[in-house]
Structure formats: structure tokens, C-alpha cells
Design a binder for these strands. Sequence first.
DNA 1: CGGAGCGTTGAAAGCCCTCAACGTTTGTGG
DNA 2: CCACAAACGTTGAGGGCTTTCAACGCTCCG
Lengths: 243, 243
Amino acid sequence: MRITGDFLRGRGRTAMTREEKDVLEAAVDRVETFPARTVVIRRGETVDMSTLLIDGVMCRYMDARDGYRQLVAIQLAGDFVDLHGYPLRRLDHDVATISDVRVALVPHDRLTRILETHPHLTRILWRSTLLDAALHREWIFRLGRLDAAGRVAHVLMELHARLAAVGRARDGRFALPLTQQDLGEICGLTAVHVNRTLRRLREDGLAEVARGEARIVDAARLARVAEFDPDYLYLDGGPWQEL
Amino acid sequence: MRITGDFLRGRGRTAMTREEKDVLEAAVDRVETFPARTVVIRRGETVDMSTLLIDGVMCRYMDARDGYRQLVAIQLAGDFVDLHGYPLRRLDHDVATISDVRVALVPHDRLTRILETHPHLTRILWRSTLLDAALHREWIFRLGRLDAAGRVAHVLMELHARLAAVGRARDGRFALPLTQQDLGEICGLTAVHVNRTLRRLREDGLAEVARGEARIVDAARLARVAEFDPDYLYLDGGPWQEL
DNA sequence: CGGAGCGTTGAAAGCCCTCAACGTTTGTGG
DNA sequence: CCACAAACGTTGAGGGCTTTCAACGCTCCG
């Protein structure tokens, strides 16, 4: 498969012409791997390349004074992890791996070239950074309005939907290399309470998380607990088709 | 003053050339006003213009099942409220006014023209949508990691910094047309608890909010309670100068 | 096979919510 | 300009959700 084959897969990739896909593919300078649990970019660093995640799971996070951190994004296969670093030039948060990952690196000067020559592809790249922003907003909603069960349920629903879009979920099951501590740092909860909440979801027949795998047992009820509506993911086949 | 004169003011506007400022100004189709507490765009609507806020305060929010809403952004003078609607085509949230507002409307076909002819200005517009995303991330941090006092303090610090950047704060004071209910919908708290928290901040000599005005009394201590670092606002004069 | 990280469970404390009542301000119409 | 109503702000008491602290079991990897 092409290096960039999962980019926007299931979320508007079809809006790219064959030539645009080639141009994007050609913008990749090289492919690298990082081991699990590695910090890749530190907050404040000036960046001159952006990272497209090919396989594995990464995260973006901000540190709190008490030593805990708050995850602000989970990045999955096909995600441009730090494309926003191109217009912003420096990042306001850290980037790290969760699992072993394979990434493609795209130098910013090649993005500038795309900007100058391919307006439609530019708009698609721009759009992809805004899909991230839409996820951010949903995370704000999750943290501001949902209780512990809702938050954990929401994360599971979101990850399932996103992984399914890139062919990495089947029958409601998907690999979930997150610890309960990680889930806590996503949901603004302690690991202890995540544990109790997962038990509750399991006992209620909604979802099961164990040994690096998640399984959504009753999607309808889980979605209700999570107040989950996949609109914000702008998935293909949703109510609108665009670009 | 020009209609677009506050756009990116204090946050990278100087990176725009004179010609680019003219092009942006010319992209404005018309100026409109809306009264306070009006819904301007409903979630899911397809949009073909974007809204630049000239004066007043607006918000973006998502509804929860219980009737409460979660604000995901506050927009101030100079903010492009829904520029993300251009690449996304439809919004995943509602947009409403808080105070009376004056806005400039920019048709999307003119943005497409800019995309095709002004790559540097395009990058600046792109960047402005990513400043919003950086705010989203900080809001996630605020909700996930801070207690009530920290959240309210953080909102006050952020609004002060952003308003100061566009010349609408003086001596730590600024107009704050938000009710305690609004603050609760920003912070994921009830209005009652916002009230108690504001009292606490007042009694501790950190900040005062009353009759539509906020006053930051002790910025250093308030920033500490809020774990506030203005990095994420990408203000001019910060540690980096870019574009 | 040993250790470190991860997961699990219980008890107690704390923060925030809910409910309720009342005071204050704002805006509107007479 | 006043009167009134509605929205907003304030305060108290009690309850619930989540955290904290502590202990222990499990799993996986070197």
C-alpha cells in the first residue's frame, strides 16, 4: 500500500484526485519508526516537517503542574499528527507514541510548494487539520458535560468509529494499546475510577476492555450513555458529501 | 478603521503584507449586526460564507441531552468565527451571539479565489483556524485537569489576554458580558458553583467579576491558580516570531 | 522466575451538584 | 419616572460522584 493510503480514508479521501494523491505521496521525504512510549516532539520546538502516522497509535498532551498530563488528541493510522505545525511553526503541546509506530515525514518546504501550485489539495490539507479541531471540540463537550461512564463510553465509540474508517476494527473489536492511566488522562479521571467505570460498562453489557483489546458489546446503548453522534467525524456516507 | 483591522491583531497580523490586507478587506461582502443572545448558525447547516467578528462577543456551543450546553469557544473582536466552515462546508456545532455584535461576511467563493491566487495569505488564514484549535486544546486541558477555581481563573486570564491583544482591556479590566450560567457552560460547572468560585476569587484578592465587568486583581497568583501560560495564544512578542 | 508495571478492590474524604429560598439588577411598559 | 416582572446573583443544607490512600493480585517481559 502507498505510504499515504490511509490519509483521510473514510473521511473525504475520495475528494482527492489521482494526481493529488501522487503529489502528496511525493511530498513524503522518508519513513521512520519509533518505539512505544517515546516523546517525539516537545512543546515549543520549532518544527520544519510534519508527521503522517502510517501505523500505530500516538498522542498529543499537555502537562499539569501536579505531574499528571492531559491528552488533547489520540492519533491513529492515516492521521496527520502535526500538520498544524506547518502554519503554526511551533507546537503548543508534546507529541508522543503510545504503541510502536511507523510515520512518514513531510518537509514543510514541500507543503509550501503544494500551497503555491495545488489550491484544491491545499484546501484538503487545511480541512484535515480542521477535522482535528472538530475532535477537540467533541473532547471539550465530553469533559464538560459527561460523567465518568459517559466519557469512557464516548472515547470507546470515537476510537471504534475512527479505526473502522481505516479498516482496523471488526465486529466491534479493535486493538486498544491504552492503559487505564492513559484513559484517565484522556477523560480527566483517575486510573482508579477508570477501572471502576470499565467494570461498570462490562457488567452492564455495554463494552469490554481487556488485554489491549476493546469490544463494543451494545453499540446503541453505549452511544446513548456517551451521547455519541458521529457527525463531528465527518465520515463518508454521513448526511453530507462534500468538497 | 478597516473592517478587518482587528483580524489577527496582536497575533501575527504583521505577517500580512499591505496587499494581503487589501485582498482580505475586499473579500468582505457586507457588514451585518445581530442582537445579543441570538442563534446565528445551527449545527449541520451547510454554509457558504464565513463570519468575521468586528465587535462584540459570540460563542460556539454543543447541546447535551439534559438541556444544558457546553461552550466550545468564545469569539471576540477580530476573530474569524467560522472560517473552518469553508473547508468543512458544514458546522458540527451552533454559533450564537452573547452581546450585540457587528460582523463581516465573507463569501466562500472569494476565499477560493484567494486560495488560487494568494498562497501566503492562504497560509495565514489557515493559521488563524489553527489558533482556534490551540484554544480548543487549552480548553481540554482546563476541563480535564483544573478544579473549579482553576477553570474560572483560566477563563479570566485567557479572555483578558485576548482582549488586551485587540485593545479592549486596560489595567486588568475588561467588559465581560457573560452570565454566571455562561461561565458555567464554559467551565463545565453549575452556575451556583461558579458563583461560589467567583466569591472565593474575590475574597482571596485574585479577581473580581461584577456587573458585566471583570477585573484581574493579582495576575501572578491568578495565573498560578489557572496554570496559565499564554504560549498557546501565539501572541506577538511571545518567545517566537514567525511566518 | 523475579520484578515492575498494570489492574482491582475497599474505605474514607472532598469537591461539586441539586434543591430551595431569597436578594438584586435590569429592562420594559405604563 | 415609577412599578413591575423576569432574569441574574447569592447563600445554605444535604447528597452523590470522584478522588485519595492503601493494599494486593495479575501479567508480561527480560
